[in-house]
Design a protein around this nucleic acid. Sequence first.
DNA 1: AGCAACGCCTGATAGC
DNA 2: TGCTATCAGGCGTTGC
Length: 273
Amino acid sequence: MPELPEVETIRKTLAAAVVGRKIQAVEVYLPKVIHYPGLTAFHTTLVGREITGLLRRGKYLFILLSGEYTLVIHLRMTGQLVYTGAKTPYPKHTHVVFKLDAGELRFTDMRQFGRMYLLPDREARCLPGVKLLGPEPLSPAFTLEWLRAKLAGRARKLKQLLLDQSFIAGIGNIYADEILFAAGLHPERPAHELTPAEICVLFRSIQAILKAGIEAGGTSVRDYIDGMGNNGAYQEKLKVYGREGKQCLLCGAPVARLRLGGRSAYFCKHCQQ
DNA sequence: AGCAACGCCTGATAGC
DNA sequence: TGCTATCAGGCGTTGC
């Protein structure tokens, strides 16, 4: 599932292929993907525009277009955005195709959760899901002091706080588990219980794990591929996610799993007290 | 306000 | 073999 490192990898790999390309036609096979505007406006607004850049905010991808328009895309669980030659047959679950002056940009999504919004630049930043995002964990806005202040007085469990996009932007289930393992912190620890030293380790772990994920080109554990259709490599570095019952790579104890807010949390009972 | 539960979706897998 | 139940989980919505 595309989290911050995956969306960042898609952004980088796609930018090399599509920036400077012109949109010549758009095909929509699953209209509900287009959340705004209506289908007719979606087509007429896009055709003829040039892709001028790609930005990422949290798990959102912003495709910047000439004339100050932005196509905002959220891939949710199984969305894929791939640049390919026009002759390649459409894979299953291809829902939107942007025909460019060279090649095509295709959106496929098995579970149909992904969404697109086409808006003037100013309004794109005001989308409810975007406006409410917390700080970018790899930006200067994210500091140890900020984290310390935000954790104080929060009774929530650490894992659920890390997954809250209005707290910090871009962390999903896989990296949340890996971050907490790297920090040696139990996923159910109430946020306000952390000592200054633990907050410092958590802060460093958030940045280190996300950076490592980006350097590896993301985690291809199920559906994720980058903008050129290639797998990432971080799945080979996962320490706890998806490893229930297997030996902890630090202490050898079996990796445990518990359910938190309807999703799995993998952790080591010995290393994360 | 803060937080938990639910619905959306298809395919892989487990169990009978 | 073939059926059904369960699970994967981000996020907008709803309700406590």
